[in-house]
Amino acid sequence: MSVARFAVIGQPVSHSKSPRIHAQFAQDCGVELQYQAIEIEPRQLADRLRELHAQGYAGLNVTLPHKAAVAALCESVSERAQLAGAVNCLIRTDTGWRGDNTDGEGLLRDLARLGIEINGQRVLILGAGGAARGIIGPLLEAGPKLLVVSNRNPWKPEDLAERFKAVGPLVPRTHLALKGDAFDVVINATSAGHSGDMPRLPPGLLAAGAKCYDLSYGIASEPFANWARKQSAAVVEDGLGMLVEQAASSFELWLGQRPQTAPVLAGLR
């Protein structure tokens, strides 16, 4: 019997922790599988997806910069992936790929683990790209008092407010227009930290006891973490737990069982 094959695709992707995470999940669940990282250039994406399907891969995780482009190449997508306009998990069908998005679920599971409440809170998302799109729907469904999405230019947040209006009210802002606002939870969904940068923000954005969470982890999360500490955040967390939780959700979609995440997260730490 052949061993099921899985992979994470992106560019760059050699740094990905996904192979290690899924190897541990498989071991803990008593499942045999192969999981690798495959670098794919954007212009090769459609051809490579067909090749990987022909080679018998059973599922793929999708990371930057392919999440939006992959959505258009699927034969079908889940409702949450369609709403996000982004796919981070591909499930093999007989004739192609079904796309799903486990990012928002992964975030909410990690926030719950950390005791970061969304219901009834004033929540700010920094950034309006693919990372933000994957988490907005689940965050709106969690019942915040206010959900604001902020970006350098106004167009992307306004597009997102329109896109998600059926789910709930999303307030679009530029970073500069946040002046005078205060939030209980701030989530960094920008990629600025990967270049060692941090968006320019007005002072005083954090309410007393505010909690800050970065979707990035490792070195990329340090600029936001430094900013949050200077603003006297009560809690500062990175996205490593979200990475593990969204991976567990992918594993469950592929193999029908949800692995334990705490031991894997502890190992990565």
Rank of each mutant, 00 (worst) to 15 (best):
G239T: 15
L265W: 07
D28A: 13
P202C: 05
P157K: 01
D184N: 14
S221C: 07
A247Q: 10
A132N: 14
E39M: 07
V167I: 14
S150G: 15
M198Y: 06
P12K: 00
S250C: 15
V186S: 01
R229I: 00
G239F: 10
A81K: 02
G129K: 02
H15E: 10
Y57M: 06
L83S: 13
P19A: 08
V235C: 01
G130H: 03
I125C: 12
P223I: 00
E79S: 11
R20L: 15
R5V: 07
S18V: 10
V185L: 02
G196K: 01
Q246V: 10
E237W: 05
K145R: 13
H194E: 04
P65C: 15
L243A: 10
P138R: 11
M198D: 01
E41T: 11
N151R: 05
P154T: 13
A225S: 04
G30L: 06
A177S: 15
C89L: 11
Q55K: 13
M198Q: 12
G193S: 04
A7C: 03
L201H: 02
L139Y: 03
N119K: 15
I40V: 13
A86V: 14
T261K: 01
G134D: 04
L33I: 12
H66A: 12
G239A: 11
L73A: 09
C212I: 09
D184W: 06
D159P: 02
V244H: 06
K17A: 06
R92S: 15
Q55M: 13
Q231C: 00
A192N: 11
H66I: 09
V87T: 05
L111V: 01
E51P: 11
L176K: 14
D184R: 04
G218P: 03
P259L: 09
N101K: 04
F183H: 05
P259N: 05
A37Q: 09
L255P: 13
T102I: 04
F164K: 04
A132K: 09
C74E: 07
A248D: 09
Q82A: 14
L49A: 12
A228W: 00
R229E: 01
Q246E: 09
Q121M: 15
K67F: 05
H22E: 04
F251T: 06
G104H: 09
H175I: 10
P154Y: 11
G134E: 09
L147N: 03
L49R: 05
L201W: 03
I40P: 07
D181R: 13
P154L: 12
G218H: 05
A247L: 14
K67R: 03
N119G: 14
I91Y: 01
E162C: 04
R80D: 14
L108P: 10
S232E: 08
R92T: 08
W227R: 00
Q121N: 04
H194V: 07
P12L: 03
S150C: 12
G241Q: 07
A182I: 00
S14I: 10
P259V: 08
P202Y: 07
